[in-house]
């Protein structure tokens, strides 16, 4: 009997020691490098500030603006309804729910488009589709939407059309020259992926 117990003891020890070799680190499935390189050179991953402005004005429900700057910069200024995911916490599990919602396009922006581009590459490597970068970042946003320049007189007609749109957008975002000068800060309505409910219970 003791010999059987000895074998069982060894068996249990081996099984327990075996758990050391079980890798419990979450593995992110990465997309193929070729696909990533192909996607990187596609211009379609950029959206212009005008497009973003139009999405916001149209209250497009599929738009998810993500501010990858620091929380302080976000508090200082951010686009309407943008959520803040600081670049260094992009991989934090707390924020993973914001990505991969079917039918939602994620648009990253930062002050320029470098940080947003990096965020795009990282999320893309994690296999998240429907992510975009706002071309030119907030600097471009200020130049084009907040302070649009009137095109020279010999500019084509489309340039004037664009200018008209930007003037309209400027009014929308800054409240300039609009009777209704009270710009209420809208509550940020954020959709999150439904969290898996952890079973409750116990004795």
């Amino acid at each position: 009997m003791n010999r059987n117990y000895f074998f069982l003891t060894v068996l249990m020890l081996v099984l327990a020691a075996g758990t050391f070799f079980l890798n419990r680190e979450p593995e992110y499935e990465q997309i193929k490098p070729e696909k990533l390189l192909y996607d990187i050179i596609q211009p379609t991953r950029y959206v212009t500030t005008d497009q973003v402005a139009r999405f916001i004005i149209d209250k497009d429900p599929t738009l998810e603006l993500v501010d990858v700057r620091s929380a302080a910069s976000y508090d200082h200024f951010s686009l309407n309804n943008a959520i803040n995911i600081p670049f260094d916490s992009l991989l934090s599990p707390n924020y993973q729910d914001y990505f991969g919602i079917p039918g939602t396009k994620v648009v990253f922006y930062s002050n320029d488009d470098i940080l947003a581009d990096q965020a795009w590459v990282i999320t893309r490597r994690m296999g998240i589709n429907e992510t975009y970068v706002m071309k030119g970042g907030l600097n471009c946003w200020i130049e084009t939407i907040i302070q649009p320049k009137e095109p020279p007189e010999d500019a084509p007609y489309t340039a004037f059309e664009l200018y008209q749109f930007r003037k309209g957008a400027q009014m929308y975002f800054t409240g300039a020259k609009v009777d209704n000068s009270v710009v209420k800060k809208k509550k940020v309505a954020v959709r999150r992926k439904k969290k898996q409910k952890v079973a409750a219970g116990g004795c």
Binding site: M12, L13, L15, A16, A17, T19, F20, L22, R24
Partner: peptide, 11 residues
Amino acid sequence: PAAWFAFAFTV
């Protein structure tokens, strides 16, 4: 990691 606890408890 949990494996350490499992092993310690087992021992």
